[in-house]
Design a protein around this nucleic acid. Sequence first.
RNA 1: UUCGCAGGCUGUUCUAUCGCCUCGAUUUAUCGGGGAGGAAAGUCCGGGCAAUACAGGGCGCCAUGCUUCUUAACGAGAAGGCGGGUGUAAGUUCGCAGUAGUGUAACAGAAAAUAACCGUCCGUCAACUGACGGAUAAGGGUGAAAAGGUAGGGUAAGAGCCUACCGGUAGUUAUGGCAACAUAAUUAGCCGUACGCCUCAUGGAUUGUAAGGCCAAAUAUAUUAUGAGUUCCUCGGAACACAGGGCUGCCCGCCCUGGUUUUGACCAAUGCAAAUUGAUUAAGAGUCAUAAGGGGUAGGCUGCAUGAGACUAUUGGUGACAAUAGUACUAGAUAAAUGAUAGAAUGAAAAACAGAACCCGGCUUACAGGCCUGCGAUUUUU
RNA 2: GUGGAUGUAGCUCAGUUGGUUAGAGCACUGGUUUGUGGUACCAGGGGUCGUGGGUUCAAGCCCCAUCUUCCACC
Length: 130
Amino acid sequence: MTTFTFKKDEKLCSQKIIGDLFLKGSSFLCYPLKVVWKAEPLPFPVPLQVVFSVPKRLFKRAHDRNLLKRRLREAYRYHKHELNELLTAHKQQVALMIVYIAKEELTFAQIDEAMIKMIDKFKKNETLTN
RNA sequence: UUCGCAGGCUGUUCUAUCGCCUCGAUUUAUCGGGGAGGAAAGUCCGGGCAAUACAGGGCGCCAUGCUUCUUAACGAGAAGGCGGGUGUAAGUUCGCAGUAGUGUAACAGAAAAUAACCGUCCGUCAACUGACGGAUAAGGGUGAAAAGGUAGGGUAAGAGCCUACCGGUAGUUAUGGCAACAUAAUUAGCCGUACGCCUCAUGGAUUGUAAGGCCAAAUAUAUUAUGAGUUCCUCGGAACACAGGGCUGCCCGCCCUGGUUUUGACCAAUGCAAAUUGAUUAAGAGUCAUAAGGGGUAGGCUGCAUGAGACUAUUGGUGACAAUAGUACUAGAUAAAUGAUAGAAUGAAAAACAGAACCCGGCUUACAGGCCUGCGAUUUUU
RNA sequence: GUGGAUGUAGCUCAGUUGGUUAGAGCACUGGUUUGUGGUACCAGGGGUCGUGGGUUCAAGCCCCAUCUUCCACC
């Protein structure tokens, strides 16, 4: 059964884990997205927690960053069930960060496409490490 | 009609599907309610709230600066006054305490404020060229700025030196105005400008909700109790002109900490004494274990949204605004919620600036399109 | 959130109390020296002083607004 909800439990809020991600996490690039991830025990019974980030360096206005983060979140919401299934099968918990690195505002359709591509790539990586 | 000026308002709406934050209900999965702005922005001011500080004195620093009013308060706002710039006009924009004292004004120019370079006049020498001494601010060129302007009298020549008119300054009086101030009369002296320092009045303690308060895993641990172990080291008071820190921007002064100096429980010996030497008792701590336990990290709760509030109406006021009555409760997140897709309406195109982070009052800046009110100029018609 | 700094030639910086024409080093261009290049020497070009207003006779400097870049604290 595929659900499209996106509750608080699935967001990564702990500053400690985020700090850890940047120190020890592995990452790959999939323009216009950059993904940082790490297998990590999480405080909630969910397969993965995720953070979305749009750098202030690229978009000065808070309003533009908000818009892009919302589009990212929306795209993630539609496609995350694939990752969920994969990780529950492997019985793993993963912390994930998705950084937007394009310099211009992309439309929802473009971001959606990129998200699908990214998830494919992630699946391959995941199977490799196991 | 066209072109303008001023002020105000608005800032897409609706439906379906999938979602987000929050509150409530039933109850553990559903249902219902609510969910960004006029600037939420810049952080330029003011206030609330909170914590800390606050024996006192002197000096300094910063802000404001025409008048009256508004306001919780302000460096904000309203109305008015005076002066300058700009526009045909409606308007718009900038400035404003005091002058007792004191400083500066490059270059140019004789001189930048107790002015003599040229010129004019007088005297002496000299002898037709001038030299020296004096008087003189009418004329000349320089400059951003040149010693009130014009006319007449006056004089050796001139000059507010005198007079008339005009301009300006200061005082007095009258009228109008709450006042700034305006108008008129009169008197005085004969009158420069700009920017500072300075003086006067009023205000200013510091830090910000990541403030502050509460609860509290894991790990380490102050302290206390009990037990075990050990004899290496430490202990209290006073003074100081030394060092560091705090009150505070600086000084005085005061306080704290360190350092230095001095003294030191009891017994015995020596000694008149001061003191010196030797030995001793008692108690506690540092180590380990167990228990209690405080502060406190991750994390959570609170602060946190009923307010100097908002909207509507009436009344008062030129206005900022105030008073009275009624209405509803209207974001509260915490790596941070409002989005996506599809369709419809208006439209040429859903399209401007832009996202709450403790809360209010202002200011400033950004802003597509649309609407309303008042006023001015011009043209045409009547 | 709070507080502070910065902007001047292509680059790195001076320019302090407003005053004549905004300087220095490197870089650039031309010339001299050399068989050639470098070095050295001589000369030259290049600036809306971040932007827009204001004060003043006069503004890179003073005042106001705004933009850029950077830093500190928690």
